[in-house]
Amino acid sequence: MNRAVFILPAFAWLLAAIALPFALIVAISFGEATQGAPPFDWSFSLANYRLLLSDDLYWGALANAARIAGTSTLICLLVGYPMALAIVRARPQRRALLLFLVMLPFWTSFLIRVYAWMGLLRPTGFVNAALAEFGLIDAPLQLIANEFAVHLGIVYAYLPFMVLPLYATLEKLDASLLEAAHDLGVGPLRAFWRVTFPLSLPGVAAGALLVFIPASGEFVIPDLLGGPNSPMIGRVLWFEFFQNRDWPMACALATALAALLAVPLLLFDRLRSATR
């Protein structure tokens, strides 16, 4: 079959550029850190995984990541759903512009968006200065280097990933369903809960996974906005690699995180092929 001309090169690329590097992570996670270059050897031991299971630092970091990513995903949904709904119900000529405004921050540098919040949230930052100016506070509030700031940063950075799939599902909803509910005397709020929301669940799931999966391994946000008290796994992995130079341990952490994310990732893959 002639299709092979297209499939084989693409498949070869995916195997070499994606599958092989991931297989190497798993293989090296069984190795041991050495003083050489590269700083590991190809031995086989379960020592890294034993340490991972026994040390609170690693377990706690995985649990923190899941918890913080989970709460942030929920907040994203609560903020993003009304936004997506408002765009769908806006006048058609205006929708393109509104969608562009949702997309634009996604194109804009991630690092810069986090940096912008650092300037706002610092003790001498814009928010504290404004609150003091209006006489609302006497002493600066601690707004940065804590979990509040991490949640805020994740919601801010990942909100477009929630709004866009929600918009895509809500846009396809048949307006006549809502009109029928209206004609039957159902109020708008009740119609929302009984008609719109249940039908938008695929979009809710897609948006939630698109936020949760990358946010759970986030490094930049907890590093720049978070404090020392509840490290997330992405940051622990980073320090294991750059400070401790323990490549096999970093690989073990990456393998553990990827294994935990396999379930939501497969769910997302399934959802994507189902909504086609």
Binding site: G217, A250, C251, D269
Partner: peptide
Amino acid sequence: AVFALLLLAPMVLPEVILGLAMLMA
């Protein structure tokens, strides 16, 4: 199915995993 998953994974997986995988390669 494998093709689609390999293609999609780098889009959603955390960047730290991706970066580490590339360096190991």
